[in-house]
């Protein structure tokens, strides 16, 4: 347990140091979510076509768009693992005197670092275009904790998928095929109640919905009635993904 934690810290430090040298990826990946908020959000907000129980539409989608972009980052983080399999890094890590579980969890949680940096870039832009956040720093910090842990789960999910993909090209395709449905079949852009029944069913098992709901409550609406349930759902999602990813990890190296 202690080793896993230390390994996680080392991996997080690795990501911080990488970001210290080169942040281009974070900036370029921020373009898309910023466009969602600034253009799509503004346009749809002025139409008032989607009922968002009192809050402006642009405020409604901001947490959704933030979570969408941090989730994308985490899911493509699994790609790094495939890359490291092509290079010798994974092989070397496997011979290190640490458990495989701690390698998987450490790598997955390190994606949370990138996710948080991503969110930190989008937030000020949202403030500039007039999104009103709850003025409580504790809520903001808690929201970041939620984003951090949720990213770990999504990264583990992507390691799981990566373990079935032998090439990067295949993974890129699968990555797109997973992330977009997750995004559209969630409460990121519209309330779940507006969805057709089948999608509504799906959104119950869509972890993205729980993350968006928790972060939306913490940053925008101040509605914490589902918060505990959301946190439990995220914790369960993380645990399941960590375990499955650790089990399937062997495939990556063989």
């Amino acid at each position: 347990m202690m080793a896993t934690f230390k390994n996680m810290l080392a991996m997080i430090e690795l990501e911080l140091r990488r970001l210290g040298h080169d942040r281009t990826e974070i900036y370029s990946r921020a373009v898309q979510p910023i466009l969602w908020i600034v253009i799509y959000g503004n346009v749809m907000s002025s139409i008032r076509a989607i009922p968002t129980s009192g809050i402006p539409y642009i405020d409604f989608i901001t947490p959704g768009v933030i979570i969408q972009s941090t989730t994308f980052i985490s899911i493509f983080y699994g790609l790094t693992i495939v890359w490291e399999r092509d290079s010798g890094i994974l092989k070397k890590l496997l011979v290190a005197p640490v458990s495989r579980y701690s390698i998987v969890v450490g790598r997955a949680m390190a994606s949370g670092v990138r996710a948080i940096f991503q969110a930190l870039i989008i937030l000020p832009v949202a403030v500039i275009v007039g999104v009103r956040f709850l003025p409580n720093p504790m809520y903001l910090i808690l929201a970041f904790v939620v984003i951090f842990f949720a990213s770990g789960g999504f990264a583990a999910a992507s390691i799981l998928v990566a373990s079935f993909m032998k090439t990067r090209e295949r993974f890129m395709g699968i990555g797109q095929a997973i992330t977009m449905p997750l995004f559209f079949a969630s409460n990121a852009l519209y309330p779940v109640q507006l969805m057709p029944p089948i999608l509504r069913e799906f959104s119950i098992v869509n972890p993205l919905s729980y993350v968006v709901d928790a972060v939306r409550g913490l940053l925008i609406t101040g509605n914490f009635s589902n918060l505990l349930g959301d946190l439990i759902a995220i914790a369960v999602f993380d645990m399941v993904m960590f375990i499955l990813a650790s089990i399937s990890f062997r495939r990556i190296i063989e």
Partner: peptide
């Protein structure tokens, strides 16, 4: 030491050693 490259190229040599040292405990 595997045949393929096994260090991170986007950080310094020292940082590679530091991260590995931490992973190795």
């Amino acid at each position: 030491v595997p045949q393929e490259m096994s260090v991170w190229t986007d950080i310094s040599g020292y940082e590679n050693l530091l991260i590995y040292a931490k992973i190795f405990g």
